[in-house]
Design a protein around this nucleic acid. Structure first.
Lengths: 217, 217
DNA sequence: TCAAAAGTGAGAATCGGATTCTCGCCAGAG
DNA sequence: CTCTGGCGAGAATCCGATTCTCACTTTTGA
């Protein structure tokens, strides 16, 4: 089954060629599982589903599920990564509409904050719900799932720096990590949007805080 | 068992007297469970224990465990609250040694950051490990467990305000929430202290960030 | 084109852990 | 002294994830 280590490159390539089709089929099945999960999450508004449910919704089998995923956590991780990727895309697109670099960063931070807060009514899967569980089981993976977002914020921060608005001595990547994590985590611990409890922090407050921390005024 | 509503006060007092002993016995048992949990956590350096283990370590019984706790989550919650309470105490004591209000706040923020990061070698249970799981199962309880810390930071922030160093328009309680959550959550997602990966944020960086966000320079 | 190999569905079996339940036993309250 | 509630021991139950079995298709490779 596994004899890859000593095989010469040409053989590996041959195998790869003849494997491509199978790979595609597999991906298609994986997607069906992923879609089913999305659907269920959307339907019940919670990320607390059972592997059985996924299997039934996707009209496949447990057998097949474990053929394609390492386990439930693996499925969660896939959803999580995907959600962050989409979020990054959405934020990037929205931010691009603003010309001023600092204000553009502000748009991004506020949007990230809004996206990250647990909102039962959002159809976008509450992707922050995954974080806690994954943070426990696979902290390293979570880290890498954050990569696209960190990338985006680093870019934005770089533009702020280019405009001479970044606090001296602060590297864009660090600033990006600070702002991003602040927005995401504070959002998580604050209540849902409609909650007008005066203790709840708002997107604007968080942004003001970050802005000062980033620009030094 | 519960007939408190219509009973006259004298009877309640009588009952209370005869109940006090039992209550103390119960508390002692609860403590034994808590201590056992602490010990196990310290021993295996992980918060991933089994109710059975607790029962065995404490030389009590499952029967008794569920007599005193609502379930495992209840035990975790108790540990969590206790850890935060102790942390608040430690931070308060340490901060008190510094005279300047702003610098005092800085001491507190940096210390909170250090305490909050996942350090396998700390004997004080990695209390932030609980947060994720609890945040999922009982977000409201987590909120209230944070209370003592929020209290402390609000005090410190009030002193900063009294010294005229607080950014105008920022209420001490909000500022406290921002700084506190920033320190705690960023600590969680950054690696352990000895990890000298250049991507890892440091206590000082976090404090500088907070300081600017709080004072507005 | 054919036979071995790999993938799949259906669903039973296993496993790990939390939570409950069943028996007695024992100490303290009356 | 008796009665009641708390307790230890440990079996029983529950829930979900993960594995395994079996019969059947499809894909692959000579």
């Amino acid at each position: 089954m596994t004899a890859t280590e000593e095989d010469p490159a040409w053989k590996q390539r041959a195998v790869e060629r003849s494997t491509k089709a199978a790979k595609q089929r597999a991906e298609q099945r994986v997607d069906r599982f992923l879609d089913a999960a999305q659907k269920i999450i959307g339907a019940k508004g919670s990320t607390d589903f059972t592997v059985q449910e996924i299997v039934e919704e996707s009209r496949q089998s447990l057998r097949s599920f474990y053929q394609h995923f390492d386990g439930k956590h693996d499925l969660l991780l896939a959803l999580f990564e995907d959600a962050l990727l989409q979020a990054a895309g959405q934020i990037r697109a929205t931010a691009a509409l603003t010309a001023d670099p600092l204000e553009r960063l502000g748009v991004a931070v506020r949007l990230l904050f809004e996206i990250s807060r647990p909102d039962p009514s959002a159809q976008r899967p509450l992707f922050t719900d995954f974080a806690p569980r994954l943070l426990f089981s696979h902290p390293d993976k979570v880290q890498s799932a954050h990569a696209p977002l960190l990338e985006l914020f680093t870019e934005l921060m770089g533009q702020v720096e280019a405009a001479g608005r970044l606090r001296p001595g602060l590297r864009p990547r660090r600033a990006a990590a600070l702002a991003m994590q602040t927005a995401m985590f504070i959002a998580q611990s604050s209540g849902p949007p409609e909650d007008d409890d005066p203790h709840t922090l708002t997107a604007t407050e968080v942004w003001e805080f970050c802005a000062l921390g980033v620009t030094g005024r």
